Amino acid sequence: MSHWDDLLGHAFGLLLGQPLAEFDPAGTYAVFHYDDETAGEVLEDLDPAELVADVDGRSGDNGGDWLYPGRWVPDLARSAFVATDVRPAALQPLLTVPTDDGRAMVWGRDLGRALQAGSLSLDELTPDGYRRYPHLLLRPRTDGSLLDAMRAATWTMSAPDGLCDIGDSLVRHGYVEPGASVVDPRWESALDQVGDDALRRHLRGLCLDARWARSAGGYYLGPGECPGDFLPIADLPGSRVIAGWEFGEGQGATVVVLLDEPHDR
């Protein structure tokens, strides 16, 4: 492992409450992200070929130094589409068993195959009322390891490049007095143990207190905590939620989850 992999692995262990080595090394760990701006709009310009394409390899970085999904390399085949009220009969056999709140899920690859076969059309999936159509839970490309899943979830795929300092930005723009902490006190002591200053500042921006996370950075829910948008994935047989984050006032969320699928990438 590289020096930065060691730094990141130690930092992630601090956030997860146990070293990465204590997690199942044979498991497949994935990241899923939801944001309400693109969750449904993606269907309007969807290329079915992207839904069936294999996207293998370690997490990539499309560039930038902020926390936004555009930096990830998307893995649409292994992404999930979740629906509450799905009309097309051709889609029904592809759906997982609905959850208690009526949501059901279809994997991107299955959706793409149905679109390519002509048994389903994009016109049948267009919006008809708020969330009455499948919305995207984006899965970034990762190699299946917990280290790489956490890299993607924290936007540290290209560290030390691509790191940001949200706390400093809040001070520079006059929102916070110099020296004041904007970090959730639950994570202060863990973050103080992160060995690299730039990495520590970056991760602090993903562990803001509830007030500041509404407008910048992220709110870290903690180990094993699942944002509500991902319950259809968390409820899959063999799934285990590792950690979750929320962004804004419910507009976005990210989860790291252990899935019951082969770790062969």
Rank of each mutant, 00 (worst) to 15 (best):
D56R: 12
P93C: 02
L120D: 05
R131A: 02
A104K: 07
A26H: 10
G218H: 06
V176N: 02
F230E: 02
A216Y: 02
T96P: 04
P160T: 09
L91C: 01
Y34H: 14
G144E: 08
G64A: 11
T28W: 08
D56G: 04
G217L: 00
P185L: 12
V257K: 15
W155D: 11
G248T: 07
L8M: 13
A180K: 15
A104M: 13
N62R: 15
L20K: 12
L203C: 02
P232G: 13
D36F: 07
A149N: 14
R78V: 00
T154N: 14
D165A: 00
M1S: 09
G179H: 03
P237L: 09
E37T: 09
G224H: 12
T28K: 15
T38W: 00
P227M: 14
P88I: 00
R109G: 04
A89L: 14
D260M: 04
A49Y: 03
S2R: 11
L94R: 13
E41A: 13
V255I: 08
T126K: 15
G9T: 09
D61R: 13
P98M: 12
E261N: 04
P98N: 13
L15F: 07
E50F: 02
A153P: 00
H202D: 06
D143I: 00
D47W: 02
T84W: 03
V256F: 00
H202P: 05
T38G: 08
L94S: 13
D196L: 07
A53Y: 03
Y29E: 04
P140M: 04
I166C: 01
D196C: 05
Y34W: 07
L76W: 07
G13I: 01
A77D: 06
I233Q: 06
D264V: 09
L221G: 09
A149W: 05
S158W: 01
L146Y: 06
S169I: 08
Y220C: 01
V176P: 00
A213T: 05
W66S: 13
E261F: 03
V176I: 12
T156H: 14
D168L: 13
C164T: 09
L191H: 01
P25F: 11
G162P: 02
A159M: 11
Y133H: 10
D192P: 05
V82Y: 09
H3M: 07
E188A: 14
S119P: 05
E41F: 06
S169E: 14
D85K: 01
